[in-house]
Design a protein around this nucleic acid. Structure first.
Lengths: 348, 348
DNA sequence: ACGTTTTACTAAATCGATTTAGTAAAACGT
DNA sequence: ACGTTTTACTAAATCGATTTAGTAAAACGT
């Protein structure tokens, strides 16, 4: 089978005896008040007939716009990030943007590698979940002002930038208060060892409420790499063993909670009778678990919409350095059985 | 802050008084036996010094290779596909390929839209999970031979193509035999209503084993869109109600199983005492469930590796139309409590 | 000693679009 | 009636690489 070469604007130009300039104007909707209706019709009909589509690489080379957005997630296989990816995808495609994904694994070196890779390529925008210890790199990237940069799931205090995040402080405060109000006296916190705003705020919200209520704060911090490993589980185990008075656990992420639930099961602790559980980030798992696990759920759809629409808006404004897109959304406390107080007489 | 324009090969040419031809040869490793060592050194040193990186868009325009692979998943937010995406990503980047993702939602129209979108753009390869009723479009795409096309998670009998799939027939046969061997007399099958090879083979494997053992086949097929809806759950409910003799359920996908587990819980049926459960596709949920759910797990890492390495190999061979990459991997039966036969005396 | 081959390069074309800087003819204004 | 503006276009430059088709000088062969 003979390969037929793709048709170019030059071919059309020759075929119709019309300059490429004119054709380009027509394609790009700049023909109004410049080109006669007859010529417009002739060109449009021909384009329709042969199914011509401009070569996007050539357009990118000439205009510097690639219609490409890089989504640098912490981990694209994490249900939270893949759900966000899915929602963003649709809106991006509707606006003829494509999305390239990658995962930092919360590792600085990997993020840097990916960033250098994409800075060289033409990319219009970055949606980034910056890893640990990446503030300087992010600040530099943003100051360069070559692409739209949207920060997701965390943010920085020290400089101006676009971001979409959950109100983690507020969520954590509400979560902790809720557990105390349910009558749990000794709420423990299982968090990530991290300087990222997200985990910091979740810890601080908990600490703040415990302090307000003159309760002793008890927390354990697991590092990102350990969460899914025996080491991580062991850390939580030791935390619980050392603090037998704990009657309730607030987990800062869903991965921590999953490790925690495995552990509690192994330890033979009953939820919520022996220890109640509440975690950040919903997953279908949690609703189905026995007992169903209470969560602070992030508004995934809303977050994804703000992320992609904010990014597209900024792209349209064409990098005006002073317009900022900053959204802080509220979490939703979903009460299920795992955080319920079982009254003493019922428990027996 | 003044934006400094990116340096081009022409700038280097002017600066060093060396033609762009020579520089291009050096950059692309074609300098051997052509260009003197001194010039090579001079150019390489300068490139190193100013940190020059060729503009990839220009390269794409000239060479026709974009170093881009499109991963068209059924649904990128599905844990199976996002796990595959994650594993492929790393290898792709190591080989300086980038991946654009999209989801067909198993809808023909959407897949067609996405395909037309990407066929116009320069894309080197497609990794596609074709939706329902998309055979002709796939055959055409493959025959055009413009990009490497890798089919994933399903395949076609009628024409030659590259694919990576699970041995679904074998897996289903083993799964059904296993349930019968465990003493379950009436195994029911909950599948997808679909002409895709994957779901067809899973059904046929079940039917084959039931026939071999002179057992009555009982199955319900739910359409893709209904799986996560009340309608889907209702269909399974009616199936179970109409067939009270069923003592074991084989689910063809993890989404079906999740809907099924919710239903069994609502119906108050005990697993595995009242009804045993086995499902395709592992998820962390299943291990943690009470009781832990037995699964036929797909070798995700292995699949992803074959997919991306197969694709990269085919890309290197530069579209030789006759070389085919076809891998059929075995599933792994993971026995957990949900499929165990509880002996009568223990049951009481 | 002189034709041929090899070495070490370069000028210009090319990929396929957009954009700048123009022009000829028609219409307008007074 | 004649200069000016508007209309409707086009030629050529440009984005930044790679590649084709060459060439001048050195080395080689007999």
């Amino acid at each position: 089978m003979k390969e037929k070469r793709k048709i170019s604007i030059k071919d059309i130009s020759k075929k119709l005896g019309i300059s490429t300039t004119t054709i380009s104007f027509i394609i790009n909707g700049k023909a109004e008040n410049r080109i006669s209706k007859e010529v417009i019709k002739k060109v449009e009909d021909y384009i329709e007939k042969v199914g011509y589509k401009p070569n996007s690489t050539a357009q990118t080379l000439r205009t510097g716009k690639s219609k490409t957005i890089v989504f640098m997630a912490e981990d694209i296989s994490d249900p939270f990030f893949s759900a966000i990816a899915k929602e963003m995808e649709e809106i991006a495609f509707e606006n003829s943007y494509k999305i390239i994904y990658c995962s930092t694994e919360n590792k600085k070196e990997r993020a840097l590698e990916l960033l250098t890779l994409f800075k060289d390529r033409q990319v219009d925008a970055f949606i980034i979940t910056p890893p640990e210890d990446f503030k300087n790199e992010m600040e530099e990237l943003i100051k360069e002002n070559k692409q739209v940069v949207m920060v997701f799931d965390r943010y920085y205090d020290d400089f101006e930038h676009n971001y979409v995040v959950l109100d983690n402080l507020d969520s954590s405060i509400r979560a902790t208060r809720y557990l105390l109000n349910n009558g749990f006296q000794n709420v423990g916190f299982v968090g990530l060892k991290s300087d990222i705003s997200t985990t910091q705020e979740r810890l601080h919200g908990y600490q703040q409420v415990m302090a307000e209520n003159a309760k002793k704060e008890r927390s354990v911090l697991v590092s990102f790499d350990e969460v899914k490993t025996p080491t991580g589980k062991k850390k939580i185990y030791e935390f619980i063993s050392r603090n037998p008075q704990i009657d309730s656990l607030l987990f800062a992420t869903n991965s921590l909670a999953i490790t925690g639930l495995k552990l509690l099961k192994e330890m033979g602790l009953k939820i919520p009778e022996d220890i109640s559980v509440l975690t950040f980030d919903d997953r279908d798992l949690f609703e189905l678990y026995s007992p169903p696990i209470s969560v602070i759920s992030q508004p995934v759809s809303h977050l994804a919409n703000e992320l992609i629409e904010g990014t597209l808006n900024l792209l349209e404004e064409d990098l005006k350095p002073n317009s900022r897109f900053q959204k802080v959304l509220k979490g939703k406390l979903v009460e299920r059985t795992s955080s319920q107080r079982i009254s003493e007489n019922n428990a027996i």
